Amino acid sequence: MPTPERTSVSAIVAAGQHILENDGLGAVTMAAVAARVGVRAPSLYKRVRNRDELIRLLAERVAADLGAHLAANDPGGPDTRARLARIVRALRDFARERTAAYRLVFLPPSEHDDLSRDDLASASAPLFDIVARLVEPDHVLPAARTLTAWATGFIAMELSGSFRLGGDVDTAFEYGIERVSAAVTSPAH
């Protein structure tokens, strides 16, 4: 009679996600995940090839979570720039609430197995849907990249404590949303 399965890929990913968000990426090891799911480390290798694959699976899960978070924060309605502002605020909220997870998605690809284009597209879909209402069809990708670059740069500086000149960071963030969204919006929109 075969031995019963003691863990699953979803349990392994959930354990890795818990460790990531509580202790950081460096703490996500095969041994730590195995201990969290209640098996010995060699048992994990039946489900996950190595730590790189585990990190890729975590990044996929976080990208899906991020996409769902952004979609849940889109109020809909005719005011497209207000919708965009809400999505960008949701990105910032996600980064503040789940900093290690957020950083995992935005690490350079050399730091972990790259997310697939499908995973990235899915996570970005709420932003692309709104941007497509603000710009001409051939400008959607450049506009979305511009918005994302500004937002992730601002968020990275905020998370690292780099805003040291005083002033209200929340006010600066709102100013940035307004100005960058106005800058990328096509005149016809």
Rank of each mutant, 00 (worst) to 15 (best):
D168A: 09
D170Q: 10
A143H: 05
T148R: 09
A156F: 07
L141E: 13
Y175H: 12
I155H: 00
R117M: 12
E174T: 10
A182Q: 10
V135R: 07
I130T: 13
M157S: 12
D118K: 09
A143S: 14
S162T: 08
T152R: 14
G153K: 07
F154C: 03
I130W: 02
A132Q: 09
A123K: 00
P137I: 08
S162H: 15
L115C: 02
S124C: 04
A123S: 11
S181I: 02
G167N: 04
D168C: 07
L147F: 06
F154H: 03
A121G: 11
L165H: 13
P142T: 02
S116P: 03
F154M: 03
A182S: 15
L127H: 00
D114Q: 15
V169E: 09
L159S: 04
T152G: 06
A132V: 05
H112A: 15
D129H: 10
I130M: 05
T185I: 05
D138A: 14
A149K: 06
V135E: 04
F173Y: 14
T146I: 07
G166V: 06
R164H: 13
V140F: 05
A182Y: 05
D114W: 09
R164D: 15
L115S: 00
I130E: 05
R117A: 14
P187A: 12
A172E: 13
T148E: 03
I130G: 00
D129P: 01
A132H: 06
S162K: 14
I130S: 02
L120Y: 01
I177P: 01
R133A: 14
D118N: 10
A123D: 00
R117K: 13
I130F: 03
P187V: 08
G166Q: 09
R133E: 15
E158T: 06
L147M: 10
R145E: 12
H139D: 15
M157C: 12
T148G: 11
S110M: 11
S181R: 06
I155P: 01
T171K: 11
S124I: 01
R145A: 14
A149Q: 09
R133F: 02
S186I: 06
A144G: 10
T148H: 05
E174Y: 05
L127Q: 01
A151T: 12
V140K: 05
H139N: 14
D138W: 10
A156M: 07
H139G: 07
S162P: 00
V180F: 03
F154Q: 00
R164N: 12
T171N: 08
D138N: 12
L165D: 15
G153T: 09
A149G: 13
T185P: 03
D118I: 11
D113V: 13
I155V: 15
D118A: 15
A149F: 10
S110D: 15
P142M: 06
A121P: 01
D119I: 00
I130Q: 05
R164K: 14
E136K: 13
L165R: 14
A151G: 00
D113G: 13
S110G: 11
G166F: 04
S181H: 03
D138G: 07
H112D: 03
F154A: 02
R179V: 14
G166Y: 08
A183W: 08
R117Q: 13
A144P: 02
V184K: 04
D114C: 08
